[in-house]
Simulated assay, not measured.
Amino acid sequence: MLSYQHAYHAGNFADIHKHWLLVLLIEALSRKDKPWCYLDTHSGRGKYPLDSDIANKTAEWREGVGQIWKHAGKAPESLQSFIQLLGVSDGIGGQEYPGSPEVVKKLMRPNDRAVLCELHPQEFEWLKKHYRHCSNIHLHFRDGFEGVLGMVPPPEKRGLVLIDPSYELKQDYQRIPAYLEKLRKRWAGACVAIWYPVLAEARHNVLLEGVRKSSVHNVLRSEIRKKNVAKGMVGSGMLIMNPPWKVDQTIEAGWSFLVESLQLDDRLSVAVDWLKPEQNA
């Protein structure tokens, strides 16, 4: 059983990057009246109190959501929904950070649906506590890679898959490109977001090269790097397969704020580029 628990890291700079992009993707899906389905391979517990002993053992949130709260008044339009979701008011934030399930819950419409997979027993108990009474959120205590693949395409035919493992298993960097190929064969039109850590050891390059060599196309990349950090997790990356129309422009519009508020290395960070363009582009 894997030991990773995100509560120690909730609200850090990588979460800000990941969840801002998640908000942009969900909002893009919601521009049409037709319902969508969100599927999460590694949900975590959904909500993370920042005043807990666990959160303050590392206090990583202070360099993430803490900085967003501090600079919220300067945020451009493309970050406003995300900042409102964080509960920011007059530069003061709430005491709870929303993980991916909570972000999606706050943005769901009555006819939309979410499917959350989690295999860590303790994390799944928290998921049940938070969401078992939500009729349009379905919980699965199972391996998310296997679970999501077995549930696509959903009846809604429109939607988003978030692939967000802990990468405790180094083979995840190698398995995800092949997994994307399987997903595409079963649900060709799905938007798929893949988060990955940027480590000093550059293990993520195995993932990026695997996607480049795979049969999938139409994949955007967004990647941030912290300033003056040379060990451990030095950045955060997100790949987006089948991105919504013009989402790259929306990311660009909010990039300067993200760079300044999180003190990113603008030279090494990549707002957005095409890791694999459309096949006929």
Score class of each variant (00 low, 15 high):
D112Q: 10
L127A: 04
D143P: 00
Q279V: 11
L2H: 12
K276T: 08
P153D: 02
T250E: 11
P197K: 05
S52T: 10
I163T: 03
I224T: 11
R132H: 13
S256Q: 12
K182T: 15
D33C: 07
I163W: 05
P35C: 07
A72T: 02
A202K: 13
Q249C: 15
S236Y: 03
A190S: 12
L50R: 01
Y196H: 13
Y8M: 05
K106Q: 08
R212D: 11
C134L: 08
L275I: 13
W61T: 05
M238N: 03
S222R: 00
A271K: 00
K182Y: 12
Y167W: 14
P243H: 08
D265N: 04
L162R: 02
K70R: 03
D112L: 11
Q95L: 09
M1K: 01
Y167F: 14
R113F: 15
G64R: 00
Q174H: 08
Y196I: 03
V198G: 10
D248R: 07
Y97C: 02
F257D: 08
W195R: 02
H19S: 07
G46Y: 03
L127Y: 07
I26C: 10
A200H: 12
L139C: 08
P155S: 08
P98I: 13
L86C: 04
R142D: 12
S261G: 01
H120E: 00
E201R: 14
K185Q: 13
V198K: 02
V104T: 06
F257R: 03
Y173D: 00
K34G: 05
F141S: 01
L127Q: 02
I224F: 14
L2N: 10
A114L: 06
L199R: 10
L180M: 08
R62L: 10
V216T: 06
H9G: 09
A72H: 00
S81E: 13
K276Y: 14
R203H: 09
E252P: 00
K34W: 10
V65L: 06
D90V: 10
S166G: 04
P153Q: 01
Q174N: 12
R225N: 07
S52D: 05
W20T: 02
P197W: 11
W20D: 03
